[in-house]
């Protein structure tokens, strides 16, 4: 029977593994369609972990809240940039880097602070 601690450990490890996996695939895959799919996964994960960090931090940890909000805004910004890029390779690369940074920031705010 799993305790709440076991579940906490499993879920947080799963989030970290999913983060690592989607970041690696977003940058290593050559197929543009697949890259785009993993970009959207990274953005979605970034927003999700930001909400976790926000909900935890809202109880009194202002730095956590600030980081979470920043991460969420960066994720949304990356998404908007990707839609507006119109196939421009440079803009797409920048969007991916911003999304990756947002996800890492969100993980830090949710799990490490």
């Amino acid at each position: 029977m799993f305790t709440s601690l076991d579940l906490l450990v499993v879920v947080s490890m799963g989030i970290i593994a999913a983060t690592f996996l989607s970041l690696m695939l977003m940058f290593l895959l050559k197929n543009q369609k697949a890259k785009r799919v993993f970009f959207y996964i990274v953005v979605a994960l970034g927003v999700y972990v930001s909400t976790i960090g926000f909900r935890i931090g809202i109880t009194g940890f202002i730095e956590q809240v600030v980081l979470a909000v920043l991460a969420a805004l960066m994720s949304v910004g990356a998404f908007v940039l990707e839609r507006a890029a119109g196939g421009d390779g440079k803009k797409l690369r920048i969007a991916r880097i911003i999304a990756a940074a947002a996800l890492v920031l969100g993980i830090i705010s949710a799990l490490f602070i």
């Binding site: 490890m13 799963g14 290593l28 895959l29 050559k30 197929n31 697949a34």
Partner: peptide, 20 residues
Amino acid sequence: VSLAVSVIFFAVLFIVLFGE
């Protein structure tokens, strides 16, 4: 759990990249 997650991670990453 770490071992299981890492094995799954390796399998998924290798299969996707190799499949490409």
